[in-house]
């Protein structure tokens, strides 16, 4: 059973903790596209936080394309976009460059960076890289 855990003693806001863990679960494949996830009310109740906190996390994840929120059908994990949104890709690439720079500053080598990227994206990266 998948769970998320919040910690009020951490510096991050609770909504940010919820959003981060959900992103990680989607990225790892633990939460697959179309999987229903608890409603705002249910998750707020189980975590013992206000409805606004979870609603904020869900709105953020919806804006980022991780969740689909429908009134009656509830909340589900979004499928990846069928077509690439150039603007979104450029914005995320900027973020990626910053992260890569931070990793380099932290002493991570290029080989290690590639291994990490390969592990995150999955076996398909090698095939695509080879094709180019």
């Amino acid at each position: 059973m998948l769970t998320i855990t919040i910690d009020r003693d951490l510096g991050d806001a609770v909504y940010a903790q919820v959003a981060r863990q959900m992103r990680q679960l989607v990225a790892s494949g633990a939460l697959r596209p179309g999987t229903p996830i608890p409603s705002v009310r249910q998750l707020a109740r189980d975590l013992g936080v206000s409805l606004n906190t979870i609603a904020r996390a869900y709105r953020l994840l919806e804006a980022e394309g991780f969740l689909v929120i429908r009134d009656r059908a509830g909340v589900t994990v979004a499928a990846p976009a069928a077509e690439v949104d150039d603007a979104a890709r450029d914005a995320l690439l900027d973020e990626l460059r910053v992260i890569v720079a931070r990793l380099r500053q932290a002493g991570v080598s290029s080989d290690e960076l590639l291994r990490m990227a390969s592990a995150e994206v999955g076996p398909g990266i090698g095939a695509r890289k080879g094709a180019r």
Partner: peptide, 13 residues
Amino acid sequence: RQAKQASASLEVD
């Protein structure tokens, strides 16, 4: 310390 943490299942109740 533990009271500051809370866990929830991601399965729809």
